[in-house]
């Protein structure tokens, strides 16, 4: 059997890559994908801990995180499309005002 701490280490690495992506990329779509990667890393930790302490609540929480991620992606991508329609550019460096 693989020790659970390895899964948690893997998820820490994936979370770090996601955080790095949010910090260094300028394309909002890639920033969004990095956020998804971080949510996935957190889900992996929750499933791993569910395996250690044999309770089902971790997996149910992962289920809810997936729904929230789906809702977040729908609204976020709609926001990006709306910003693109008004400014014709989606570079995050140029998004510095709330009113379009």
């Amino acid at each position: 059997m693989v020790p659970v701490s390895w899964y948690i280490a893997l998820s820490a690495i994936l979370f770090t890559i996601g955080a790095l992506g949010v910090l260094i990329r300028r394309n909002p779509l890639i920033i969004f994908m990095s956020i998804e990667l971080m949510l996935n890393a957190a889900n992996l930790v929750m499933v791993a801990f569910t395996r250690i302490y044999v309770v089902l609540e971790g997996q149910i929480f992962v289920f809810f995180v997936m729904t929230v991620a789906a809702a977040e992606v729908a609204v976020g991508l709609a926001l990006i499309v709306a910003i693109f329609k008004t400014r014709h550019s989606i570079n995050v460096d140029e998004m510095n005002s709330l009113k379009g």
Partner: peptide, 17 residues
């Protein structure tokens, strides 16, 4: 920091039950 907590402080312990 994550590696320190996992492999030096050993917050999770050992094998999968």
């Amino acid at each position: 920091e994550a590696g320190y907590l996992l492999f030096v402080r050993k917050i999770t312990g050992g094998i999968v039950p």
